[in-house]
Design a protein around this nucleic acid. Structure first.
Lengths: 210, 210, 210, 210
DNA sequence: GATGAATGAGGTTTCATTCAT
DNA sequence: TATGAATGAAACCTCATTCAT
């Protein structure tokens, strides 16, 4: 029943370390911070970090894996709602990701900046997991191509890239203060990103004529 | 007539170092490589790197600045062709970037992976220059919104993010072998990315009906 | 009862490093030695030096500050003995400094050669602390000028320089084997330096006649 | 007739470099400056320094040797004036050294700070030359001891140390702005340093009584 | 004489990781 | 569990010196 450890009221030190790592990685960057910075932020001894994690990188891996799986599960769940159109499904996916950033901006910043956008270094290891997301999105598109609602000349994989790329860029823009981020901006963005990618930037008249 | 430097046949060592750095950074990543790796690859002595560059980071900065400016210039030039529609202009921009990757994949990999997608660390310093690109693209969109060809409910800045994000994700997918990259793929991508973003993923029937 | 640290028999590694540094600095000079020389001499790992000191210079600073303060305290104490004449006080000061050299020649060599006689570089930082010594000595002289035992045409500050300069030169001469250094030499020097500075080099007949 | 080189008006580059070195060594310290700093200050190319001097250290050696010999010659000359008393001779020596500092403070700063007060490192090499000065001064004292004007219980070598130490400390105090340095201060110092060392700090009444 | 590009050894410092208690 | 002292492998950068022109 208790959280963990042998005391009922014991704080879960592993969790404390992970949460501290989120703040430190977001603030200083994974490379530029020391393990001792994380330990200090967590208020635990230096060596305890190594009691729970085999390396600094494993902390990052844990943060990523934990969170990314939530997203994959969410996408799977969204995709399973049969009554939804592809556009609606993509809208839900966009909404989930944007809400994730709203509620845990530090964690999402770490995941995006240090993992998904850093595929060259650590990200490389997570590429398979990252691809799963691409594939799930592609799956949604594929169905829409099959039922004729999405253009067939744009492959599902290609479409998934455009969609995911747009969203990640959006988050990146928020992370680095390139776009405004009021509650309203977040809410509006959910609809607009889908409108932009599914409906296109061109106004309907033009689109229809083309 | 002479190439450069004080010898008629003299090679420009600074250029040699920069080109070596492109290969090394692309192969090992900026962080994971040592300055001596660059020197070795260039076939010059260790210290010569520091004769031309004040630090390892300055090499990266130089590579980025050089190349990014070419892109900014290209976008400005494309935008100045008055007879082109916004979709055509965006198509040219996408084409320029995709061709850049085709012809210099290592350099573009370095720029994207180590700078634009790493805004947290080095990229931070280049954010203003990166933003210039966003703004130029937004400028193209803005005109189309003004003349009614682009939807007015999607702001130009937001649209620019979607467009740029889609292209960068495309390149990232190529860089990490997530999407196929034959000559044909590159050529087709030029048109498709614009079709996806401007025309939307939805087939015209759906779009018109919406 | 325990020596220090967490083990009953534990050696204080910081002290071990400081003592090793004294020997290495004295032998090779601060500039010409490497941090690894100090670590080797102390029998500890390279990095442990940086666990206790932020830089090589901080080791020197610590050695100086520790020791110099002892001297300042001693001078203050000597000056407080009201029954002593100025000459006696200066004699005690000279005695303290000479004994310091006798008992810890390496440490005093380091302090003199690398700090007080190197005011241009590191010493600069310690100038205020060095000046304190000058001022304390000047204070002793000042009292003697006030009560008429010391000449009033020689300012206390000027006199302090002559006195301190003579002693430091004496130590320097010992350090570089310019003067002999038997136990007898040390003991005699204590009286002679005061005799030379307070009483003058000239024999009393001449002094009285002048 | 011309200074040097093949042009009548040719500047002596070696001299230019030496003079530049004086300024740079005085300003930055011998250790903390680079050979290129000297070349820049002299307005000559990097490599030219090595055309005239075999190493950075040789520049310092040259500066020291040149100047120190002038002093040795001066002391010899002063000592040869048979009509002078020991006190007068020492006064002339003090005057020569103090004037040297007045007229060429940078050069004297370099010699004192980087050579005579740094005997551990470079100075070591010049110790024999430095000792010559001690010995010449000791010679003056020795004569005075022989004729009874100087106390016999203070050895000439010991006395020379006190005298030289006092003067060098005086110069050091000026160098590091510990004592005031108006024209008046310099002039007065010439007499006072001799009065202090030869006559003693104690007022005549005390001295005579002792 | 004059230039400055080229060399490369070496030192300081950092920090992830281990381990004794 | 928990601590933090101890380890030691890198890596960046400096800069005296050389040398081709």
């Amino acid at each position: 029943m208790a959280a963990s450890g042998r005391h009922g009221a014991g704080v879960d030190k592993q969790r404390v370390i992970l949460d501290a790592a989120i703040r430190v990685f977001a603030r200083q960057g994974f490379h530029s911070c020391r393990v001792s910075d994380v330990a200090d932020e967590a208020g635990v001894a230096y060596g305890l970090v190594y009691h729970y994690f085999s390396s600094k990188e494993e902390i990052l891996n844990t943060l990523f894996t934990e969170r990314w799986q939530l997203m994959l599960d969410a996408i799977v769940e969204i995709d399973s709602r049969e009554q939804l159109t592809a556009r609606d499904k993509l809208g839900q996916v966009a909404g989930f990701i944007i809400d994730s950033y709203r509620h845990e901006p530090d964690l999402m910043k770490v995941i995006i900046v240090e993992v998904t956008r850093a595929a060259n270094t650590f990200g490389r290891h997570h590429l398979p997991k990252i691809r799963e997301a691409y594939n799930l999105i592609a799956g949604i598109v594929e169905q829409a191509r099959a039922d004729g609602t999405f253009k067939s000349d744009i492959s599902a994989e290609f479409a998934a890239m455009c969609f995911y790329g747009a969203i990640e860029q959006l988050l990146t823009a928020w992370i680095f203060d390139v776009l405004p981020k009021s509650d309203d901006d977040y809410e509006r963005a959910k609809g607009l990103v889908v409108e932009a990618i599914c409906g296109g930037l061109e106004s309907d008249a033009v689109g229809a004529a083309a």
